[in-house]
Amino acid sequence: MDNKMTIKFSSVSENEAFARNVIASFLISSDPSVEWLSDIKTAVSEAVTNAIVHGYPSGGGEVEMKAEITDKYLHIVVSDKGVGIENVDEALEPFYTTKPDEERSGMGFTIIKTFTDKLTVSSEKGKGTTVDMIKYFDGGEGNI
């Protein structure tokens, strides 16, 4: 069954777990495997944490999470209207972090890339960032 959802929530760290639980609840009816669900929860956690920590470094702001499910794939878009990323290619590199003093690993996007089938990041300085993720149910490269 095709299904869609959109939520908006405040940019506070407490909502990282909230977003993970929302996506898990949204997926219940499609009966995903434990591993598949766990990959998605991790990818969502990375994207939402990025929006909260990096998108809105001085707090405030809202994060939006949209999800669409079909019998072939799950499509999730996490977006913020925060500070944006100056160089997206650099941000996608493993171990790249702008906050090494805060013990950030710089592995967020690498984990999303590994745990989903397609990742697109678009960002504009001062306007915000959109993280677009697709994961296929059969793990393949099916056409959309």
Partner: peptide, 13 residues
């Protein structure tokens, strides 16, 4: 039961 890349940073620290 759950850990994301923040956990890597914490363990590396």
């Amino acid at each position: 039961t759950f850990m994301d890349s923040t956990g890597i940073g914490i363990l590396l620290g």
